[in-house]
Design a protein around this nucleic acid. Structure first.
Length: 129
DNA sequence: TTGTTGACCTCTT
DNA sequence: CAAGAGGCCAACA
């Protein structure tokens, strides 16, 4: 990551002209918000739920606006395939993500969620589109 | 309009 | 077994 820091993407984004006023962001936020407390999910799972499983990067990209999204999106519950806190650096503080997870009674070691597989919450499985 | 970036995932060397 | 490169879709400049 560079210090470039893109100028926040909030503000309704660009709204597709196809009808949906909300963009990819809303979809991701909505799914993340539905994550039960004490549970975690992965970018791939969300991407798969949204249909863009081939591009999990989009999910992470959408999370870029999660910081200013309202209501706040529990981005700390979103981890990578390994269950590692990849986006911890994007939080206010590098330890904030871990702190939030600890509040959820989720154990974290070496930036990785313990028993991540058990705490894993798959939107496609729970929400089933 | 094109080009570059992005909190990833998977295959190949 | 470990490291590197490619690829996907979407948004910003």
């Amino acid at each position: 990551m560079k210090n470039q820091k893109t100028k926040k993407v909030g503000k309704k984004e660009t709204a597709r002209s196809t009808g949906k006023q909300y963009s990819f962001f809303e979809d991701v936020f909505d799914v993340v918000r539905q994550i039960p407390k004490g549970r975690v999910t992965t970018f791939g799972a969300i991407a798969n739920y949204l249909g863009t499983k081939l591009s999990a990067r989009m999910v992470g990209w959408a999370m870029n606006g999660a910081h200013q999204a309202t209501p706040p999106v529990p981005a700390h519950r979103v981890l990578n395939r390994n269950g590692m806190l990849t986006g911890k650096a994007h939080f206010a503080t590098p330890t904030l993500m871990e702190e939030l997870l600890l509040k959820e009674k989720i154990k974290v070691e070496n930036d990785t969620v313990v028993d991540f597989q058990k705490l894993f919450w798959d939107p496609a499985q729970e929400l089933e589109i």
